[in-house]
Amino acid sequence: MNIFEIIWWGSVGLAGLTIAMLIFLYFRRLIIDARMARQNLKRAALQDYVYAVLGGTADNARTFTPDEQRILLSLVTEMMRGITGTMRDQLIDLLDKNIDQQRMARGLRTGAPEDRAKIAARLFWAKSSVVQDALRDAISDPNPQVVLAAINSLISTGQTLSLIDIVPKLEARRMLGHRAVRDIFRKLAPHNAAALLALIDDKDPAVAVLAIDALARMPSPAALRRLAHIVAMHPNVDVRATAVRTIGLMNDRAFDGAVLGALADPAWEVKGQAAIAAGRMRVMDALPILEGLARDSNWWLQLRSTQALARLGERGVAILESLRADPEHAPIAEFALSERHL
């Protein structure tokens, strides 16, 4: 067989493959659409049922198939995101009576990683001991998504978790940089005041950053003093930057000095956060430093310092106006002014 015959017969094969692909794709899509249509119908019927239960016109103890339970769980957990008060309690009661929690707990222990994560995330309402035990076990799951979902569900059901216990498990799965971990620290902060103060000295800067960030939720003079010390002394840039950011959020004028000191930090990340803090705390002594930073070559510093200047009253705005007259810095000054409608 020569090259041309190979091309010809190869192309014939390709044509066959193309037709097969087309047929496969079309029928696959038909099946997907049909399945989705069936699911939508079921979902609509269950939605009506949930509304009827909430309106008091239906009994909330019907028997559902596992598939219906799955849809009901997904539907109600979605609805619950924006609902509080009595209606939320009604929805939790509805799930409590209609969802087979034993089966869910089993799924959480033995399902595939993706399923385990989904189940853990959807059990944020279940207070039964069987589910709570399964969720606590899931904190040691090898899959990071399952761990995060389990911790969040436990927090939602009002469980008090110790950050000191959780941190090694998150650390072992390299999850400390995850945004969701920061939220977990923030949620657990009120019950972990002592733990946070201990964790800000953790040898792992990622843990210290998370602890310092969470401290912003519970301002205290003791915490502020520790943070001011960290801003001045800590060797890690991220830790210093987070500390000055937290000082800004705590907004205690007694710590202006720490912010002014951070404005002279060698790292631009720290200076940028200090600029934000200076704007938030209205540190008027920072005006000349901010004016200098607004002319820095680093755009992020320019942005943050001009934004801070826009918050510092007439004197700050006057500096921005003078920057606006300078063609090189005019765009960023304009941007900062327009953000605050000045």
Binding site: F4, I7, W8, S11, L14
Partner: peptide
Amino acid sequence: MAYIALTFIFGVF
């Protein structure tokens, strides 16, 4: 025929 195949069948593919 190889040219026709290259021109049309590959294009469709």
